[in-house]
């Protein structure tokens, strides 16, 4: 179990190589904290992470952020911090980001084109963040 865990952490840190050390440690700690307490489930999840390619681990945070910004936009609309027009714009931008993420994943080899598509997706997600930041808390 410990050997598998060590291997997984190395894979995770390698996957997070594009991020800063603090970010890599942050995501690793978050994932460890999320491991099910049951040892069988823990081994299962750790094994799954160990199998992930480094490009998957680069893409995973971007893909996760897509869900996070969509949920943030829905919450902001429900709390009337943004209007329907802004929410629709957030939806439109998120759909464009999703298409870029799919494009990057279709490549899978981490080529320049894939990384460019991923950068475009992050720019679109940043635009949604900016839209939501304009809303009062």
């Amino acid at each position: 179990m410990i050997r598998v865990l060590s291997f997984s952490l190395l894979a995770l840190l390698a996957g997070c190589a594009g991020f800063g050390r603090t970010e890599a440690l942050g995501v690793t700690q978050a994932l460890i904290a999320a491991l099910p307490q049951d040892s069988a489930q823990g081994s299962f999840l750790v094994g799954t992470l160990a199998d992930s390619s480094s490009f998957e681990m680069i893409m995973a945070p971007v893909k996760t952020r897509l869900a996070v910004v969509r949920r943030a936009a829905a919450k902001a609309l429900k709390e009337q911090r943004i209007d329907v027009v802004t929410a629709k714009e957030a939806l439109r931008l998120s759909d464009k980001a999703s298409a870029k993420i799919d494009l990057a994943w279709a490549d899978k080899q981490g080529t320049f084109a894939a990384k460019l598509a991923l950068t475009d997706a992050e720019d679109l997600l940043n635009q949604i963040d900016t839209l939501l930041k304009g809303a009062p808390k």
């Binding site: 942050g26 995501v27 978050a30 994932l31 904290a33 999320a34 491991l35 099910p36 489930q41 299962f44 999840l45 799954t48 992470l49 995973a60 945070p61 996760t64 952020r65 869900a67 996070v68």
Partner: peptide, 16 residues
């Protein structure tokens, strides 16, 4: 942090 926690939560949910 919210992205890291969301990623962790998604992984746990998918594993379960």
């Amino acid at each position: 942090v919210d992205v890291a926690l969301s990623l962790a939560s998604a992984l746990r949910g998918a594993a379960n």
